[in-house]
Computed example of a mutant assay.
Amino acid sequence: MYKLKVLVVDDHPMVLEGMQAMLSQIDFVLVTGLARNAYEAMELLKADMPDVVITDINMPEISGIELATKIKKEYPVIKIIAMSTFNERSYISQMIAQGASGYLLKSASKEEIEEALQTASSNKLYMSLSLELSRKEQQDITNRPTLTSREKEILILIAEGYTNPQIAEQLFVSPYTVDSHRKNLLTKFAVNNTAGLIKLAVKYGMV
């Protein structure tokens, strides 16, 4: 049976030990490494590329959000599941915006971790049942469009006020390519103009 390769990232040794103990009880999982920070995570990831990275959000130096951005840019096929304590719910939207496939509380049970891994592996979004998100929060997360790394770059530059020719020059692509991405962004956000695009991108924590 194929084993799902999982890398766990957390700056607390006790959390790493606890996650390893629970993951070792899931028969379809193989833990490929335990990292205490983003630097260790990237080294382990290069040595043995996992299918899923479960990462803490609130880490010193490089946060889980920044790590997720880097992983998704360099290894877009890797699934990322964010992990945090209950009072860090404000980070959910940022992690999802960076391409995370799920969100778990550190108090999650083995069964919940197992479900999160299966859901993420099926290209679906997993949200911890313990979060008790408000209807508006759930709707915001559901409505948030999924962007490619290039679309994210262009969205940020649009928000900073760059024109299509300026973006094209900065990214070494043609203005036609930028215009095509801009139209795709308007479609994905279901808006008619740049002002509406930036307004929603800010609301979703994407710029």
Rank of each mutant, 00 (worst) to 15 (best):
D56Q: 10
V178D: 06
P50A: 12
P50H: 10
K110L: 12
A159D: 06
S134K: 09
Y162E: 10
Q118A: 09
D51R: 09
K188R: 03
Q118N: 10
P175D: 04
L133A: 04
I62C: 05
T187V: 15
G102Q: 11
T142K: 14
M42I: 13
K203D: 12
S128C: 10
T177K: 00
S90M: 14
L105F: 07
F86N: 06
T146H: 14
K106M: 11
T32I: 11
L185R: 10
S109W: 01
R36D: 02
Q170H: 14
Q94E: 14
Y204S: 03
A195N: 10
L185K: 02
V31I: 11
R36M: 12
T55Q: 09
L131A: 02
S90T: 15
E169I: 09
T142Q: 13
L105Y: 10
L105I: 09
I62P: 00
S101K: 07
E61F: 12
Q20I: 08
K183E: 10
I26G: 02
N37D: 15
D179C: 08
D11V: 00
A159S: 13
T194L: 08
I198R: 06
P175C: 03
D11T: 03
S63F: 00
K5I: 09
T148G: 04
I158N: 01
S93R: 11
E88F: 07
V8Q: 05
Q94Y: 14
L125I: 12
I141G: 03
D140N: 15
R150N: 10
G102D: 07
V173Q: 03
D27Y: 05
Y176W: 09
H181Q: 06
Q98S: 05
F86M: 11
E74T: 06
S84G: 14
L131K: 03
R144W: 02
F86G: 00
D51N: 15
M127P: 14
V207H: 04
I80K: 02
Y176E: 13
K79V: 04
M59P: 02
Y75H: 08
I141L: 15
S109M: 09
V6N: 06
I198A: 04
A100Q: 02
D140K: 12
G102W: 06
Y2V: 08
I158W: 00
I26Y: 00
I167H: 01
L30W: 07
E111C: 10
L197A: 03
A190H: 13
A82T: 06
Y39H: 15
S84D: 14
L7P: 01
L185T: 12
V15T: 08
Y126G: 00
K46L: 08
L131I: 05
L200M: 04
L7D: 03
I65D: 01
V6T: 01
H181N: 00
E66C: 03
D140E: 15
D56M: 06
E66P: 01
D140R: 13
E88H: 10
P60R: 07
I158T: 04
E17D: 14
L7H: 05
P50C: 13
N143P: 01
F86R: 03
E61I: 15
D56Y: 05
L157F: 05
Q94H: 15
Y2M: 07
E132D: 15
P50K: 04
Q166E: 14
Q138N: 14
V9N: 02
T187G: 04
Q98L: 04
